[in-house]
């Protein structure tokens, strides 16, 4: 008996999910690099490869605590780190934030996906201005929601106006 040769497909939940910052153009760039071409990569906001080093003090703290970091911690994160974020909220004038209201994650990206998964039901709409950082739209779609286009920010200044030629949902607030 031979094994089933039918194709193995990705989840239909990924239909409409799009993150082109690391899309086909970047794949071509990677292929060209493998062929020995030197590509100047202006595509991702990744400071380190351009010689923007992290502050020494930060690296020293991580190194100093490395041996004590081998176990899991609280699912929302280490207490001192969350406390520091809480103080940051006070600096920014965000009132009433307690340690419990702060969740640490593996970068903002993980938390965006987590927040959308926790909130969005199939068919829910999230208002996302255009242009956007596309992870937001991708996370909304992955969660079964719809990106509700859109409050256009002017491409020139990033501010207003309130209208766009982009398609918009019929249920979106009129002024958005």
């Amino acid at each position: 008996m031979s094994a089933d040769q039918s194709l193995i497909l990705k989840s239909e939940k990924l239909k409409g999910v799009c993150y082109d910052i690391r899309g086909p153009v970047m794949r071509e760039a990677n292929r060209m690099e493998e062929d020995g071409h030197r590509i100047i990569k202006l595509n991702i906001g990744n400071p380190a490869p351009f010689g923007f080093g992290a502050p020494d003090e930060i690296l020293q703290d991580v190194i100093h605590n490395l041996a004590d970091s081998t176990g899991y911690c609280h699912s929302k994160g280490l207490f001192p780190a969350r406390k520091a974020v809480m103080h940051y909220c006070q600096e920014k004038g965000i009132d009433g934030v307690t340690i419990d209201d702060i969740i640490l994650g593996n970068g903002v990206s993980e938390l965006i996906v987590m927040a959308m998964q926790a909130l969005v039901n199939n068919g829910d709409e999230i208002l996302i201005p255009a242009p956007d950082y596309p992870l937001w739209t991708a996370a909304v779609r992955l969660s079964g929601g719809t990106r509700c286009t859109t409050c256009a920010m002017s491409s020139r200044t990033g501010n207003r106006p309130w209208m766009t030629s982009a398609p918009r949902s019929t249920t979106a607030p009129v002024r958005w």
Binding site: P47, R82, I94, I102, L104, S109
Partner: peptide, 14 residues
């Protein structure tokens, strides 16, 4: 803080 590879972020509910 130029530590994108650390993946250190947070979410604040207020």
């Amino acid at each position: 803080y130029r530590v994108a590879g650390f993946r250190a972020g947070w979410m604040i509910i207020s």
